[in-house]
Design a binder for these strands. Sequence first.
DNA 1: GCATATTTGTCCGTATGTATA
DNA 2: CTATACATACGGACAAATATG
Lengths: 232, 232
Amino acid sequence: MTTTDPWVDLLAGDRSLLDRTSTAERVADVLRQRIIEGALPPGTRLSEESAGRALAVSRNTLREAFRLLVHERLLVHEFHRGVFVRVLTADDVVDLYRIRRMLETSAVRRAGTADAERVAALDHAVSAGELAAEQERWRDVGTANMRFHQAVAGLACSPRVDETMRQLLAELRLAFHVMSRPREFHEPYLGLNRDLTELIVAGSTAEAERRLDEYFDAAETQLVDAYRQLPR
Amino acid sequence: MTTTDPWVDLLAGDRSLLDRTSTAERVADVLRQRIIEGALPPGTRLSEESAGRALAVSRNTLREAFRLLVHERLLVHEFHRGVFVRVLTADDVVDLYRIRRMLETSAVRRAGTADAERVAALDHAVSAGELAAEQERWRDVGTANMRFHQAVAGLACSPRVDETMRQLLAELRLAFHVMSRPREFHEPYLGLNRDLTELIVAGSTAEAERRLDEYFDAAETQLVDAYRQLPR
DNA sequence: GCATATTTGTCCGTATGTATA
DNA sequence: CTATACATACGGACAAATATG
C-alpha cells in the first residue's frame, strides 16, 4: 500500500462506554463517509487484511461492515475476490434518476401535509448552497444540493422515504466522483432550488412539481451524456 | 442437524461446487422465506447458537446473515440482547402505505413506457389470484395480490424500484401475519385489480392512477383500523 | 500451462461485557 | 446481588479460489 494512509482511525475514541452501536456499524459509518466524500474512489479494492489492520478491527467484524455497505450498493462483493467501491454504469445513473423523480415529485405533490420544520429544511439547504457558491466552495455546493433534494423527499413525511433517499443520494455521489467539474454540475441549479422552495412555501405544489420534473429532464440528460463520454 | 425443528436444511445440498453465492446469503434467503411465510412470526427470537446449530453454520456466518435481514427491516437487532423478527407498529403500516402509494401511483403514471412483458405480468398476477380465490386458497390470494402490486411497481421499469418494492412487501407481510382472516383482507381487491389491469392495458393511465389512489385510501384505513384493535 | 503466493470463505476457541432470572 | 446465559469481538486455523511469477 501507500505511505499516506487513506484510513483514519475514528474508532479509537471511546470504544465501550454506554456505546449502543456495534463496532461493525461504526466501521461501516467510517467507510461510508470515506466513500461518499471520494477518499475511496469507485473501483478501489478494500482488502480485508489491510483495511482491518488500519481500522484496528478483526476480519470478522470488518466483513460484517462490508456486508452492510454491499447492501447499500456502495460496495460490490465479488466472490473469492474481495469487495470494491462500486463503479456505476450509465444505466445505473439513469435508474437513480428514475426513482428519484418518482419519490421527489410525489413528495412535492403531498407537500401540503408537511409541517413547517420540513419546509424550513428546504430553505436551509438552499441558503447553505448559496453561501458556499459565494465563497466558491463548489464541493460544498454539491453537498448542499444533495441536502436540498433530501429535504424535498422529506416533504413526504416518511421515515422510509427518507432512508431510501439517503441511500440513493449516497449512491449518486459515486457517479459525481468519476466526473470532474463540480462547479458546472451544481451551480446552475442554485436558482432553480430557490424558485422551487418559494413555490412550495407559497403552496403552489402543482407548479413546483412541474418545475421539478423539468429539472430532472435537464439534469439527467446532462449527467448521462457526460457520463457516457468517460473513458471505459 | 436435528430432526424436528422449525428450520429446514436447504443449505446441505451442494455446498461448494460452482456455487457463486456465499453461505451467509443462502442463510439469509432461508430465514427471509421463513419469515415472510409466517413460520417465524413477529417477535420470535433468533438465538445465534440454536439457529446456527440448526442451519449448520458457524456463528460468524449467521451473524452476517442477520445483518442482511436487519438491513431489510425484517429483523431488529437489540444490542447485546439478540435479533428478533420485527414487530410492526401501526405507524410502520401507515408509513409502508405512504411509500407504496408514491411508488405505485408514479409507476402507473409512467406505464406508457413499459414493455408488453411488464404489462402482461399484471394480468398473470390477477389471473393467479382469481384462480386461487375460486379454490378458496386465501393465503395464495394474498400472495397473488402482492405479486400484482409488485407488477404495478414494475411498470416503472426500474431495478431499484423493483428491489425497494420487494422489501416493502416483505415487510408488509409482517403486518398481515399478526392479523387473522386473510380472506377478508384480500378477496375484495380481486375485482379492483382486474379493473386496474384493464385500464392500464387500454392506456387509461390517468384513470388507473386515480382508482389506485382510492384503493390505497380504503386499504390503508381498513388495515390500520384492524391493526390498532389488536392486543398489545 | 504450471507452480506458488496471496486472499478470501468458513469455522472454532476464548475472553469480555451485558442483560436477566 | 449473584449467577447464569448469551452477545460481542478477537485471533487462529485450514480449505478453496484467485492472482502472480
